[in-house]
Design a protein around this nucleic acid. Structure first.
Lengths: 218, 218
DNA sequence: ATTAACAAAACGATCGTTCGGTTTTTGTCG
DNA sequence: CGACAAAAACCGAACGATCGTTTTGTTAAT
């Protein structure tokens, strides 16, 4: 069945191949997963996989690209929270969006760590650079008006958003992807609620302006 | 050379083998690293490696155990900060201790992620359970007295310490181990200083008691 | 007839591990 | 001390399995 002018209607289910590969890569790593394992899992011949994908790394790259596109889609809940940019009032929404994102991309997120270890981050680097640009673009402008309201303390709001985003993302990643209790036995909801509360008001009583010790020198 | 009554005096440099293995595992993953690569890197024969270690996984296990013991050593800077428990005044010291810990254990920390991916966290789980116990033990008692001073807001101090510790650890891990800009292009010192400031005082002006929106339902 | 889709065998390389054999060290007896 | 078995250290070939990929061929759609 040759590819026609309309959308290619190939016999093989590409999605099924990618699903199988994702499941195997994310639980064994890239190098430890074989093409024969992938072929067996999606009930295809090894030869046919090479016919459609060309190489093992291409399959892996397709998985990374898919995750990337899903996350950068303007329709994605996480992007909507970013665009709305109601920090710090939207912290609960941010938490929920990140929780769902991690939940729905468990395996893909593990690919990120696999890439860092086995490829030196080669496949994911452009993704995070794009994210950083978009981030500064959205919040950079937004915060100039936010600062004028006088609601924020003198903490750098850009740092604050980064702190919140990364902490939540990492917390849910450990919680949902790693399966290892790396949070000192803390309960998830308690930890997230506590984190948000601290983020807004700090751990010290706010009546008197806090003295700020000199930050450590380098 | 049979092992005498005194400490075994083996010819082979165990440290050299482990160093080579750590370097390879941490840059390629476990499954993608071969015994022949390790043997070549430490200039030993494959047979001799099996004579002294028995299997590839044993070498890996020894590396995990070594990291564990280094971190749990009461003389380790990080443990000293934990025992002193001057939260939140010691946040700068905590940051420095964690930065140094990550710096000096770059490769071993990558082993943790390798374990999560390729072994489902089998080798590292007991370690984090021990950490959690010790953590609650130290800070549980400490915070009962700290709360009586009235300096802390009503945020759960145990959550606060966990938040701080994990955030710093993860931040420096990404910074020093991953080599990928995952922090939205934020500068390291700026981010850490900002984080500590936020942790103490929050991002909102503290004059009036903040209204606390209902946390999201599940 | 042409070409994509698919399957299976084959290729050279490499995997973790074992094994046979040699070298080196050690403990013991004369 | 020297001789000598026992044991550990060490090496490299070999084993069976499996790796990513290619090749060869057949089937099915256009």
């Amino acid at each position: 069945m040759p590819r026609g002018l309309q959308a290619a209607k190939s016999e093989i289910s590409t999605a099924r191949v990618l699903d199988a590969a994702l499941q195997l890569f994310s639980t064994q790593g890239y190098g430890a997963t074989s093409m024969r394992q992938i072929a067996e899992a999606c009930e295809q011949s090894v030869g046919n996989l090479y016919h459609h994908f060309g190489s093992k790394e291409t399959i892996y790259q397709r998985l990374i690209d898919g995750y990337w596109e899903r996350l950068l889609d303007p329709e994605h809940p996480l992007q909507k929270v970013f665009v709305a940019a109601n920090f710090p009032d939207d912290l609960e929404e941010l938490a929920v969006a990140i929780e769902r994102t991690v939940e729905e991309n468990r395996a893909s997120i593990l690919l990120v760590f696999i890439d860092v270890i086995e490829f030196g981050g080669r496949h994911i680097r452009p993704f995070y650079e794009t994210m950083a640009d978009r981030f500064r673009q959205v919040y950079g402008g937004r915060f100039r008006e936010l600062e004028r309201t006088g609601r924020l303390s003198d903490a750098d709001p850009l740092v604050a958003v980064m702190v919140a985003t990364r902490w939540l993302f990492y917390f849910y990643t450990v919680e949902k992807c790693f399966g290892v209790p790396m949070h000192f036995g803390m309960d998830a909801q308690q930890a997230v609620d506590g984190f948000i509360r601290i983020l807004r008001n700090g751990v010290l009583r706010g009546e008197q302006p806090q003295q700020r010790p000199q930050l450590h020198a380098r």
